[in-house]
Every structure is written in structure tokens, then in C-alpha cells.
């Protein structure tokens, strides 16, 4: 659905996107993740046909974004970062205008406007002026706008920013349900959201893709991510560290806390090894009492911090 080859984008001499390549298949929900200024919005603007690429090739739904811009734009529903809207129109009027602008014809216009109103829970405000809507409702109008012409591909730039927790949840559910019919590329700072919604994650940092994989695989990628163990036993920290480090498959042992005779360790295995068995034998041999033994799962947040720190 999207093919990006070696995309670069310069702003007045400053290179915001530095030769990235990726592709998105039909039916995927792909999350764009990255710290502020990573180039997410820039990349999405190129994909939406607003900014032309400085270098490289971008195709959307099989159409080159420069040579066949108009045809490519027909297939995209784009929701920009700050959701600019005409404040002097009513929600219904605005959506009808946008539908017709994007080629919906005749009686279908009303049908589509009603459908997206229902989908984005806009029925209560459909006759209100957009200028009088709260931020969250504007956000939903932007989403309805992106959906109104039934595009194959949705590009959503931070769709849940500025929403309250209820709305975040409902927009997230909406996006997940849209995944059945649309291919979706969304950007976000909320890692749990990307983890919950996306089938694949692209981590962008300083205009480069640092990682691209499923959230689970990414977790495995990070040191200690796959099969790390948290252990709380009755021993002194030096003693525990010394004994645990003797295990052949252990990469590192960290003591997180020591109080009242109990120590908490985080133990990372060498890549791909399972160390739980070995740890238990050590505990038995040393005659330690055991209070907790659990798996450490690297969250997307850990991966994010790991990959995007300087």
C-alpha cells in the first residue's frame, strides 16, 4: 500500500528525513514512533502529497506521489497533526464539503457524512459550529474527514493527542476496528497505544528508521528484553551477585534493592538463553529463601528510550 525508497526531505538546507525506506502492506496498522523532531510529521506530509520529497521514491496505492500525485491523493485519508478545520462551518456542512471535494457524488454524500458521524460519535454535535467544538470533538471531525471518502489508506498524525482517557480509548477502539477495511499508518507518542493497536512499529529518530518490527519482536531486540528475570531472595547483594554471575548463560546481574536481609536482582541472560532453571538451582544450593521470581518484559518504552537516546 505504501512503498518508500530512500526518502530524503530537506528544509532550507536542514535534512529532516535522511534516506528512509519502508513499506506497508494492505491491511496493516503501522505505528510511527519517535521523539519530538524525529521527522514523523514530515514523512507523513510527504506521503499525503503535501510536501514533495527531496530525494527518493514514494508510491501510495501503486501511484507515484510526485508523478501521479492526484491519483495517489484520491486513495489517502489524511489527518494532519493539529487538525486545521474551517471554524465557520457546521460539522455536517464541513464533512459534506470535504466529501464532495474528495470526489463523493450526489446522494452518496449524505450517506457518507451520516456514516462517519456515527462512526466517530459526532451525532450530538453535527449541527454545531466547528469553531465552538472542544479539542476532542475537533479531533474526531478530523478523523471523520479522513474517513469520509472511504480511502484505502489512512494516515493519522497523532490521532489521540489532546484527548481525555475515555476518548483515547474510544478512538483507539475505532482505529482497531477500522483496521479490517483500511490500511493505517499512525504516529504517536503514547507507547502503550502503539503497542495495543499496531501490528508493526517503525521507530524513527533524527530522520532515520532505528527499528522496524512487531512490538513483540522489538522487545526481544533489546538487551535483557527476552527472558530477563527479576528475583527477590534472602541474601546480601554482593553474595547474590557473585553466585548468580557464575551461571554460564547469565549476561549481567543488577541489584536493584537491598533491605532487611532481602535483595532484589534483575538478571539478564545471554541472547536467546533461558536461565530460569539455573537460577532456581542456585537459590536451592545457597539455601536462600525465595520471595519473588518473575519475568522481565521490556516495554515498548524501554525499547524506545534505548533506541533513541544519544
Amino acid at each position: 500500500m505504501i512503498t518508500v525508497e530512500n526518502l530524503t526531505k530537506d528544509y532550507a538546507g536542514f535534512r529532516a528525513v535522511q534516506g528512509i525506506s519502508f513499506s506497508v502492506q494492505k491491511g496493516e496498522i503501522v505505528g510511527f514512533l519517535g521523539p519530538n523532531g524525529a521527522g514523523k510529521t514530515t514523512t507523513m506530509r510527504v506521503l499525503a502529497g503535501y510536501l514533495p520529497p527531496t530525494g527518493g521514491r514514494v508510491a501510495v496505492a501503486g501511484h507515484d506521489i510526485v508523478a501521479e500525485s492526484l491519483e495517489a491523493r484520491r486513495h489517502v485519508g489524511y489527518m494532519p497533526e493539529n487538525v486545521p478545520l474551517y471554524t465557520d462551518l457546521r460539522v455536517n456542512e464541513y464533512l459534506a464539503y470535504r466529501a464532495r471535494l474528495k470526489g463523493v457524488k450526489g446522494r452518496k454524500v449524505r450517506e457518507r457524512v451520516e456514516a462517519v458521524n456515527r462512526l466517530c460519535h459526532l451525532d450530538d454535535v453535527k449541527n454545531k459550529m466547528i469553531g465552538n467544538l472542544s479539542k476532542g470533538y475537533r479531533q474526531r471531525v478530523g478523523l471523520a474527514d479522513a474517513l469520509v471518502h472511504e480511502p484505502d489508506l489512512l494516515i493519522l498524525d497523532e490521532p489521540t493527542i489532546g484527548l481525555d482517557p475515555h476518548q483515547i480509548r474510544s478512538v483507539r477502539d475505532l482505529i482497531r476496528s477500522l483496521g479490517n477495511r483500511h490500511t493505517i499508518l499512525l504516529s504517536s507518542h503514547i507507547l502503550s497505544e502503539v503497542e495495543a493497536v499496531c501490528t508493526r512499529v517503525l521507530i524513527l529518530h533524527r530522520g532515520r528508521i532505528e527499528a522496524a518490527d512487531t512490538p513483540e519482536n522489538l522487545a526481544r531486540l533489546v538487551r535483557g528484553g527476552g527472558g530477563g528475570v527479576r528475583l527477590e531472595v534472602s541474601c546480601r547483594s554482593e553474595e547474590g551477585q557473585r553466585e548468580l554471575a557464575r551461571l554460564p548463560d547469565v549476561e549481567s546481574v543488577n541489584c536493584r534493592a537491598e533491605r532487611e536481609g532481602w535483595s532484589v536482582f534483575e538478571i539478564a541472560p545471554k541472547t536467546g538463553k533461558d536461565i530460569r532453571d539455573g537460577i532456581f538451582s542456585v537459590v536451592q544450593q545457597q539455601n536462600w529463601r525465595l520471595r519473588e521470581m518473575s519475568r522481565l518484559r521490556a516495554s515498548l518504552e524501554d525499547i524506545f528510550v534505548e533506541l533513541t537516546q544519544d
Binding site: Y50, R73, L101
Partner: peptide
Amino acid sequence: RSGTIEMILTAPVR
């Protein structure tokens, strides 16, 4: 100023 130009130019219009 309001950024609506982005909405117009990302629609399939010349």
C-alpha cells in the same frame, strides 16, 4: 495561518 491549506492541498485537487 490556520493550516487549512494543508487540508485543501492533500485532497485530490489541482
